[in-house]
Amino acid sequence: MEEKILICEDSLEGIFTAVYQVYAWKLDKDHVVFQIGEEGNLRLFAEYITVAPEVEKAEKVISTIIRKMGEEVYWDICCMLASRDPEKGQAVFRTIVTALKTGQGREVLSNVKEPYIQKAFELARNVNCEVHHLYGFLRFAELENGMLYAKIGPKNNVVTLLAPHFADRFPLENFVIHDVVRRIFVLHPAKKGCIVVTGREYDAFQLPGESEEEMYFQALFVEFCHTIAIKERENLTLQRNMLPLRFQEFMVEMGKK
């Protein structure tokens, strides 16, 4: 039987819309392959269908996932979709199909015999790990207008996964998290929800310089980190294992650029 290859946009909406279409069009799920973006090896004997993202359809899929698999698995799926792995679309698709078909619901990720679910599990674990790292390693600096500003360069597209944590932690602060790799700002105006800024708006976005006090507190923290170490136990290898270099370049105490 001919394979159908669904080309979808690299976003939650993009991939969830494609999931919706598979069910709406009653495609044979064992012969559907999800591909993200146009690139990829063209296959002979396959039909290519481009699926444009549609918010309403994506939302229907989201509410089904939450209803059938619970909030936790939904969070894991969001993590999978933030991964930079090009096979994430297929992995998520197979996970959802299996969960709905077998009624395994929230236990679907413990299914060790299905390779795509294994893959999905791995992706979620990886991304979760980066999110948790950045909960700790992200550094804000205070700008002249009192706003807090953080720069990150994550492997995966985690900036929107990070924002809710910081919004809960700092409800009264205006803050910005900046993914310099993917050119995304997430803005959090005090007491309000978060806004994502990309594309042309990203280019037009202007930031003031650092506040006068900023240097002072940075210097205090650097001194603190330096002093808290016990010289008799020095262990730079362990430090580097726990705090990978790719995070260090954004951290004041590690001599950020």
């Binding site: 700790g136 980190c225 170490a229 136990r233 290898t237 362990l238 430090q239 726990m242």
Partner: peptide, 10 residues
């Protein structure tokens, strides 16, 4: 949450 690691790896 761990926020940093000092040179003794703690």
């Amino acid at each position: 949450i761990c926020h940093s690691f000092s040179s003794d790896g703690r």
